[in-house]
């Protein structure tokens, strides 16, 4: 235990970068990769912002996201929408993506416009803003995972295999732990590549 503490301690050190302090600890933050980017900084670096962030990542702790609007997947799916209507990127490329507020407002201009959550949405749109949606499923940048949605969709991997049954969820919650064991179990079962370079580069 003591030895492990020494290792962690030796990895930690503080380096001043243009007047700002970052923890030196192998870490990664990338464009659009979720937490890790110090938004107020004048520089971009994959360093962790704080020791706490580093510890959380070490243990793989991902906080439960708090969404700006209590978007309910259940109702949208009940009303006949498909996952790909909003997450259109899944069939074409690596990222699922989510639609811009203009897409939401195309319907919600009229539909359920008086509901409190929709009013929040309308207020964002009126301000020229997007709701700051929080990612539910993401990898730490140090995982160096280049996950690609499209090939999985093309091979008939259903969305719920990795994301749970969203038809039963209101605000999306993380129901599956997408660690490497999860990926490899399926990859092995289906006899597809388990080479590191398939995902990590």
């Amino acid at each position: 235990m003591a030895a492990a503490l020494v290792i962690v301690a030796s990895l930690c050190g503080v380096r001043a970068v243009r007047g700002q302090t970052f923890l030196i600890l192998a870490a990664g933050a990338e464009p659009g990769a979720g937490p890790g980017v110090p938004p107020d900084s004048s520089v971009f670096t994959p360093a962790h912002r704080s020791f706490l962030d580093a510890v959380k990542e070490y243990f793989g702790i991902q906080s439960t996201p708090v969404q700006p609007i209590a978007f309910t997947h259940k109702i949208h799916l009940q009303n006949g929408l498909q996952c790909t209507n909003c997450h259109a990127g899944v069939t074409q490329g690596p990222n699922a993506g989510y639609p811009s507020i203009t897409f939401c407002m195309a319907c919600h201009q009229a539909i359920a416009a008086d509901k409190p959550e929709i009013k929040k949405l309308t207020a964002y749109a009126a301000n020229g803003q997007e709701p700051p949606w929080q990612r539910v499923y993401w990898f730490y940048p140090t995982a160096h995972v280049r996950f690609q949605h499209a090939p999985h969709i093309r091979n008939d991997i259903a969305c719920e295999q990795c994301h749970g049954d969203l038809a039963q969820q209101t605000v999306a919650v993380k129901t599956k732990n997408l660690n490497m064991n999860f990926c490899l179990t399926c990859h092995k079962a289906k006899g597809v590549s388990v080479d590191c370079m398939t995902c990590h580069y």
Binding site: P35, K56, F59, S63, T64, P68, P132, Q134
Partner: peptide, 16 residues
């Protein structure tokens, strides 16, 4: 440390 809910990215997002 687990389970404390937070909005990690509070920056304003403009409509693209």
């Amino acid at each position: 440390l687990a389970g404390c809910g937070e909005q990690t990215n509070q920056l304003i997002r403009f409509i693209p």
